[in-house]
């Protein structure tokens, strides 16, 4: 009798486990494709910018709020920072790594705020995505047509995580943000070590001008 009860209980637990697995997998199945996600986020951000007269007037606090709420959750800053650090990443202590991620994040927010303040009705063309079924790392390619000057190609390096697709690199006209910072970080670390780099990043975020 006892054995029977135990078997039933096991079946019950197994069912619960299976149900939990299916429920967990459901959002993953319904997960949107990376190019669809980039398009949705871009349109969402631009719509918020267009609809907000304070942003049009250049209100930095409002711009940052839009970026924090709508843009940043779609970035993987830990991966971005690790990639920009390259071989130096493993040499950093967990505490240094945390500070680097925080400061790098702030720097990118400031940069994005500046870029968005200059938004003037650009249109974004989305190029067809080249992606095979099992890919976990893709490049979403877009072409930004500006009111003045030549169009700019902006591509997004996207990786698939447990939490959906996340952006880990932005490539402007073939210039990768992560690669560009890798050389800058190297230079700073060569001169002042990892703590020197943390300090430089923190100074820049406090508004100290670059050399």
């Amino acid at each position: 009798m006892n054995a029977m009860r135990q078997i039933i209980r096991r079946i019950g637990l197994a069912t619960l486990f299976a149900a939990a697995t299916v429920l967990n997998a459901a959002p993953a199945l319904a997960q949107e494709a990376p190019d669809v996600m980039v398009k949705r986020v871009a349109q969402d951000v631009l719509a918020a910018v267009k609809a907000d007269p304070l942003i049009q007037a250049g209100n930095q606090a409002r711009i940052r709020e839009v970026i924090e709420v709508k843009l940043l959750p779609n970035f993987d800053f830990a991966r971005m920072t690790a990639l920009a650090m390259g071989k130096n990443w493993r040499a950093a202590t967990p505490e240094q790594q945390k500070r680097l991620i925080d400061e790098f994040r702030s720097l990118l927010v400031r940069t994005y705020s500046g870029a968005i303040s200059q938004y003037r009705n650009e249109t974004i063309d989305y190029k067809p995505l080249r992606m095979s079924a099992g890919d976990t790392d893709v490049l979403v390619r877009t072409n930004v047509v500006r009111a003045t000057g030549s169009p700019v190609q902006i591509d997004y390096g996207m990786e698939k995580t447990a939490d959906g697709w996340k952006c880990y690199d932005v490539v402007v006209g073939g210039v990768s943000l992560v690669t560009n910072y890798r050389d800058e970080f190297n230079e700073q670390i060569k001169n002042g070590g990892i703590d020197g780099l943390v300090k430089t990043l923190a100074d820049r975020n406090k508004g100290v001008a670059a050399k």
């Binding site: 720097l107 400031r110 940069t111 500046g114 870029a115 200059q118 560009n180 050389d183 800058e184 970080f185 230079e187 700073q188 430089t200 990043l201 820049r204 001008a209 670059a210 050399k211």
Partner: peptide, 13 residues
């Protein structure tokens, strides 16, 4: 303007 914000060292950037 973006480089002014983004760069740690503008020459290197």
């Amino acid at each position: 303007q973006i480089i002014d914000t983004a760069a740690l060292d503008r020459y290197v950037f």
